Amino acid sequence: MLLALGQFVFSVDTMTYSELQRSRSWSYASNSIAQGRDQHQYTGVGEETVTIPFLIYQSHGFGNRQSIDDLSEMADSGSGYVLIDGSGYLYGVFAITAIDETRSHITNRGVARKIDGTMKLMRVDDDRIQTDKAVTTDGQEV
């Protein structure tokens, strides 16, 4: 398993990816003061997003076009799904906010041989999920 979003498992058979981009932010309020630099106060955790560029090249054994429809159905539900990688690292609960795809290498039947795309996720939990490091069977942290 490369990565799992809920029950959807990223693999060579479903959808492959070569990178995962994660963006996190923190919020600060600004207060202006006379004859000085603005003062800032920490107000909390901001947004966290994950972007996953993917590739489906079904005729060469990489991925399946149906995977895009499966992920689209998950997005249609509006639900959040646990995102976890193959080492057991738990990112949190994320909702799918966008799936962009580009179909190329079109056959004479109009079927795309290659699909490049990007899936965008937004974290929807509020740190209520345990995010400790994964522990192997011999008790070592990963």
Rank of each mutant, 00 (worst) to 15 (best):
V12S: 07
I56C: 03
Q41C: 11
V9G: 01
G92H: 03
V45W: 06
K120E: 03
Y89Q: 11
G88M: 06
T14A: 10
S87P: 01
K114R: 15
A34I: 07
E19D: 12
T16W: 06
G117K: 02
A95G: 09
S30G: 08
S77K: 10
L2F: 10
H105Q: 14
G139A: 04
Q66S: 13
R24F: 04
Q41T: 14
Q58E: 15
F94Y: 13
M74I: 05
W26Y: 13
D138K: 11
A98V: 01
D69M: 13
L20V: 12
L3I: 03
T51G: 09
Q7K: 14
R128L: 11
K120M: 06
K120V: 01
F8S: 00
S27I: 10
S23D: 11
I99E: 01
H60T: 09
W26S: 15
G139W: 02
L5D: 01
F54N: 02
G61R: 11
D69I: 14
L2Y: 10
G63V: 03
T102Y: 05
Q58N: 12
G80D: 01
D125G: 03
N31M: 13
Q130F: 08
T49G: 01
S23T: 14
V45L: 13
T102G: 06
I52H: 00
R37T: 11
D76T: 08
D85E: 08
K120T: 05
G92D: 04
V124P: 00
P53I: 01
A29C: 05
R128G: 11
V135W: 03
E141V: 12
L20A: 08
L5K: 02
R103S: 07
S27A: 14
L3P: 01
H40V: 10
A112H: 12
I84H: 03
D69G: 12
S79Q: 15
Q35T: 09
G78D: 05
H60C: 12
D85Q: 06
G139V: 04
N108P: 07
I68A: 02
Q7G: 09
G80A: 10
S11Q: 05
G63E: 02
R65S: 09
E73L: 14
S77Y: 04
I115S: 02
G44R: 03
A75S: 10
R22A: 13
I84W: 03
T102M: 09
F54R: 00
T51A: 15
A134M: 03
D138C: 04
F94S: 00
A75P: 04
Y91K: 04
S104I: 00
Y28L: 11
I33G: 10
T137K: 15
Y28G: 05
